[in-house]
Design a protein around this nucleic acid. Structure first.
Lengths: 117, 117
DNA sequence: AGCTTATTTGGCTATCTTACCAAATAGCCA
DNA sequence: TGGCTATTTGGTAAGATAGCCAAATAAGCT
């Protein structure tokens, strides 16, 4: 893999990494229903404010959210709603996995090694 | 955030984590053009075989690829092509970010603090 | 069985990530 | 200015991740 190809995939992975954390997925999900301030998100998440703030700054660094200061509060807004489509795919993968597990289960009950009975 | 919500977002994050690595993104990209054996991928990637094998097992664990043994080789195939749609979104985010940087650049040249000139 | 090749697994170290606390910064209001 | 609240930043310790080497496993061939 040459250096340029490497750079492209590293850049893409960097953006995906921003989503690869339960708290940050939760934040994206919440923001998909409208902007929220740090304090609101913090209360919902139940972690330290500094932790939530750092998660938000990771999402911001990846270009997925924008922030807007209003008085004492900072409001975050989802900038790239297309990430929500991705979540549909994730859901599909998960359901797929569950179905596979279910066939394994049926297979072990019937003793059918291919699980196709 | 209650325990069940937590569990859902952790499961989703787990799947996204499987994609959050340049080598694994490269693998997914290659497999989108058809199945490949470990040796082919290893040669393209240029890392140790054991490293590539571990990446593949992570993708397999997430349910994104399937493997098929044929003789001495193991062929991997993309199981959930919808992840490719996601890559389009990633690309969009990246282009967005580049445009933002470009406006910042124009802004600093013109001295326009909003970059809208 | 013994040899060869392809792949996976175990072990180890170096690096990255995350969470919390404490302290700094920013904006409002008296 | 000084106090108050919201948010960010720095520091640090615990845990996760990634890479390589060496060894184990699996399958074909003679």
């Amino acid at each position: 893999m040459d250096t340029q190809t490497q750079a492209i995939f590293e850049a893409r992975a960097g953006i995906i990494k921003a989503l690869a954390h339960p708290t940050r997925l939760f934040i994206v999900d919440e923001l998909s229903r409208g902007e929220k301030c740090v304090c609101e998100l913090t209360e919902m998440i139940g972690a330290d404010v500094s932790t939530v703030s750092k998660h938000l700054s990771i999402l911001k660094g990846a270009g997925m959210v924008t922030d807007r200061k209003q008085g004492l509060n900072v409001f975050y807004e989802l900038k790239t709603p297309c990430v929500l489509n991705f979540l549909d795919c994730i859901q599909a993968v998960m359901e797929n996995n569950m179905q596979d597990q279910a066939s394994l289960f049926r297979c072990s009950l019937s003793g059918n090694p291919r699980g196709d009975g």
